Amino acid sequence: MPVPLLPPAPPVAPSTAPPAGPRDRRRRRLTRRWLSAGLVAAAGGVSVATLAPADPPTASVLVAARDLPTGAVLTTTDVREAARPADTLPDGVLDTVTGTVLAGPVRRGEVLTDARTTSGPLLAGQPPGTVATSVEVGDPALLDSLAPGVRVDVLARLEDPVTGAPTGAERIAVDVVVVRVPTSTTGSPGLLGSPGPSSASSVLVAVDSPTAARLAAAAGRTVLTVRSS
């Protein structure tokens, strides 16, 4: 039986597109490279997002709203709330500040703690071996200029051993810090209800042991001078 003949294939139309030149091939290579780089970057971003640790827990604390000086009596306008990493917070963070007196200067944004106030530990932040000792001010009028954190020099009046006449003064403590001042410096009311003389005559200063011994030996003869900040 004869095999039927297949019809001839239709002729293929010649391509009308021009052959790719060097510039077209270069453009295609660059396109493939950019696509590959984009896929790699996307995959890397997903990996980083997956492997990155979660943000640490935070806590809301009170910080200084602006630079505050020594002796400032705090109000709610002096502080603001801020979020801080909970594991970096110091001990003694304050949760209320109204009426609190600063024992030293505070910078804007600093977390407020009990060590920064007059109600905190007496010698907080002082070097090891520091002691607190009482020293007479000499001039009660100077008490209004004193506050915890103020730095002072202490002079001792010199007297003639025979006549008791003053002969000068020597500096027995230099650049020491006041750590506590009297909470009230007014004595009993005077005549007609006027304020009486000051009942306070001394403050506590932080010094080393040898300086404390010199201050004790000069009791009754000391005068404080305030140093410029």
Rank of each mutant, 00 (worst) to 15 (best):
P18A: 14
D87Y: 10
V152R: 02
P128I: 10
D144N: 03
A42Q: 04
L122D: 12
S60I: 06
A216Y: 01
A52Q: 03
V137R: 07
T76Y: 00
T75C: 00
L94K: 13
D95A: 06
L146K: 00
R108N: 05
R66P: 02
L102A: 11
P140D: 12
R221M: 05
G71T: 01
L191A: 15
D78R: 05
E159V: 09
T130Q: 01
R84Q: 02
R26E: 12
A169E: 14
L146H: 01
P182C: 07
T70N: 01
P85N: 03
R157P: 01
V106T: 14
G125T: 04
V106A: 06
D144L: 03
V152S: 03
V48C: 08
R180A: 13
T222M: 02
L215E: 07
D139R: 04
L39E: 14
T113R: 14
E159M: 06
R107G: 10
L74F: 06
P85D: 08
L74E: 06
P210Y: 12
L158A: 15
A124Y: 06
P69Q: 14
V131E: 15
V207R: 00
A82M: 07
P90L: 11
S60L: 09
A200E: 12
A218F: 07
A141S: 04
A37C: 09
L123V: 12
D208N: 09
G196S: 15
V174T: 04
G38C: 01
V137D: 05
T58S: 08
P57D: 08
Q126G: 05
L68H: 15
A82V: 13
R33C: 06
S202R: 05
L215W: 02
E159W: 09
A42L: 06
L68V: 10
P210F: 15
T167D: 03
P166E: 00
V162Q: 15
W34I: 05
L192Q: 12
D87N: 07
S184K: 09
V131G: 14
A124N: 07
L35Y: 03
P57S: 10
R171P: 04
G193N: 04
S15W: 03
V162K: 12
L215T: 01
L224H: 08
L89Q: 11
T118G: 12
T225F: 02
L68C: 13
P56Q: 03
T76M: 08
R26N: 12
P121F: 12
A165F: 01
P53R: 11
G44N: 11
P10N: 10
I172T: 03
V162C: 10
T113K: 15
T130F: 03
D24C: 09
A52C: 05
G190R: 13
L5N: 10
V61D: 11
V223E: 15
G92I: 07
A206K: 05
D95F: 09
A141N: 14
R157Y: 10
R151L: 01
S194H: 14
A59C: 04
T222I: 10
V101D: 09
R29E: 07
V93A: 02
D160R: 05
T186K: 11
R227C: 11
G109P: 06
R66A: 01
L112N: 13
S202I: 07
V135D: 07
T183W: 13
A72K: 08
A115F: 05
P140V: 12
A103S: 08
R66I: 03
G21W: 03
A141G: 14
A216D: 03
A217H: 15
